[in-house]
Write a protein that binds this DNA or RNA. Structure first.
Lengths: 354, 354
DNA sequence: CTGAAAGCGCTTACAG
DNA sequence: CTGAAAGCGCTTACAG
């Protein structure tokens, strides 16, 4: 047990060349065909695998980029990880996922770990460390990009979802469908704030007063609680939930109380989680392309690693996914009385059931 | 830019001691209080952070355990990661997640990467590499544990979910609730097979014939397709889905066709995903404690790393979560005609709606 | 308790 | 194209 792995020296001896030549052959540098053949044979025979720790020490580069996510559990982070992989894989870079910066202290630890391991770059998702501390920790030797940063601007490259725009589009969709009294179940943190302000701006642009705000925290449970709040608001015909998990809880509670959806209440979510298309009614929502964000983050961090990067700030767009959870609102009904019915396909969907 | 980080030598000079003393102080070995104080002061002043790559090379241990998951996207893997963290964190070990072994080739690459990086242990989830290749790659220097391995036995420590037992419990539950004609939407791979055989065994033990088998592949889409199959099977009163995602698709399609659930069809899933409690009707299912599996895997790999480990095979139990998607079956109705109604609370739930 | 020195397994100018 | 040698930043017997 614990037998020694062959080292580059073993290979050199077996091949009758120097370790420098083995190193060159392994890394695709110029080497005579004869030497290359001998090295390859020896590598094969000994089952040699280079020790990347030693290489890392010698080169000062590890070839890995570290990713800190708030919580591995989120399906969105998983998608983001996939996007990161899309770009690192072809470049021969590895990336390591470190979980959870749910607290600043955990994030600090995770970041230190990564830095001590000499990662070449870091992607911090939803970071909550103060900018100056980040600067001090990360220094200038390591590429860094911030995704969905809580605090505002930094001297770092950052990438954020267009939460405001997505919320605007969702609210606008409800308005276009004829809703005038639209509630919002709020979320948390920066993303929650931005979604709220997109909602408010859409109402304002439509000349509508702000609808009731119901406290939420991005969980299903808060959606369930919101259902109670809605009962006291009979004039509300539609609600924009800060995310799909809230919408899931809300729909669940409403259905359990016997509400007919979407006829009695239209609901729209945010995120487009994998289950959202399969709810009943299927959930109209705002899709965020987490994979694209991951790709973008990886590209930026690679650029930052090579030093060729000006700090920049990117906003990733969202798209509205229209499904069946939004029915025409009262304004649409009024319009129908005047004009001949001009059913859009979305209206079709929502009217097929009753 | 690219300024040099301080090294142990910088600290030694600043503190007026040798690097050996700095090393000892940093690692909590015996050092005179005076020396310790000087080192600590210098570390603080220079902002020194040890280079774990260099340490890894010197000690031959990296302090990291690598985890290969089939797909970061699964919420279950996320839970497992949390469980792994539960045990590695207090031990000062790090773990790195490498994604996706959806193909043997990708898994091979991921494993090589990990090994080249000198991880002290690996946890392979759902590995599909042949046992002999695993043995050759991993060797005896690295601890390894297999979670939910596809192929049968190995010389490795393995941990599996009790898929068979969970499926048995699910099917038994349907039988106890009075169902006699129970279909099964199948899954994939070893887990799918085991769930199928648990289902078959439960029917057999109850003296019932096997019900119809509908092909599935663990996706919502296959659940949607299964709904069509069920239409042709009017005598089926209950269906055991190989996982919750299938159940989600099935419920979605059935509801869209106007079925009343659970009255017209009882449904039971497997996994207990986060959304399952919020479906309408809320889904009765088999919970797997992925976090506990992760914990167990981590404990075993730590033991394997210290060499103090006999290979072992553990089976992690499941538990039935009774919610509202199972209604009493025909046998229960017949029983009711004889005896006065003896409604269990579960029956209550499922009869409140119609 | 402490220091000088060798060693971990690579890479890379520097000569040739 | 190739080799000898120094160096990457630590740790750890070995002496003292």
């Amino acid at each position: 047990m614990k037998e020694r792995y062959p080292t580059i020296l073993d290979v050199a001896r077996a091949a009758g060349v120097s370790t420098a030549t083995v190193s060159r052959a392994m890394n695709g540098r110029v080497v005579s065909p004869a030497a290359r053949a001998k090295v390859e044979e020896a590598v094969e025979r000994l089952g040699y695998r280079p020790n990347s720790v030693a290489r890392g020490l010698a080169t000062g580069r590890s070839g890995v980029i570290g990713v800190i996510v708030p919580d591995v559990a989120g399906p969105l982070y998983a998608q983001m990880a996939r996007g990161i992989e899309d770009v690192t894989e072809p470049l021969g870079l590895q990336f390591f996922l470190l979980t959870d910066n749910r607290s600043a202290e955990l994030e600090r630890q995770a970041l230190r770990t990564l830095l001590e391991r000499q990662v070449d770059g870091v992607i911090l998702i939803g970071s909550r460390l103060p900018a100056d501390e980040l600067e001090e920790l990360v220094g200038t030797r390591t590429g860094a990009v911030l995704v969905e940063r809580e605090a505002p601007l930094d001297p770092f490259t950052s990438i954020s979802l267009d939460n405001e725009g997505g919320a605007y589009a969702a609210t606008e969709h409800l308005i276009e469908r004829g809703h005038r009294r639209i509630a919002h179940v709020t979320g948390l943190r920066k993303a929650g704030e931005r979604r709220l302000s997109g909602y408010l701006r859409a109402l304002e642009d439509a000349g509508l007063p702000s609808g009731p705000l119901i406290d939420g925290d991005f969980t299903e449970a808060s959606g369930v609680v919101a259902a109670q709040g809605l009962r006291a608001l009979p004039d509300v015909t539609a609600v924009f939930c800060a995310n799909d998990r809230i919408a899931l809880g809300l729909v669940s509670a409403l259905l359990a109380e016997g509400w007919r959806l979407p006829d009695e209440l239209s609901i729209i979510g945010f995120d487009d989680l994998p289950f959202s298309a399969y709810l009943s009614p299927s959930l109209t929502t705002v899709r965020q392309d987490a994979r694209a964000m991951g790709r973008l983050a990886a590209q930026r961090v690679v650029a930052a690693m090579s030093g060729s990067a000006e700090p920049s700030a990117a906003l990733v767009p969202t798209s509205l996914v229209v499904r069946a959870s939004v029915a025409p609102g009262p304004a649409a009904a009024r319009a129908r009385e005047d004009a001949p019915p001009k059913a859009t396909s979305a209206v079709q969907v929502s009217r097929r059931k009753p």
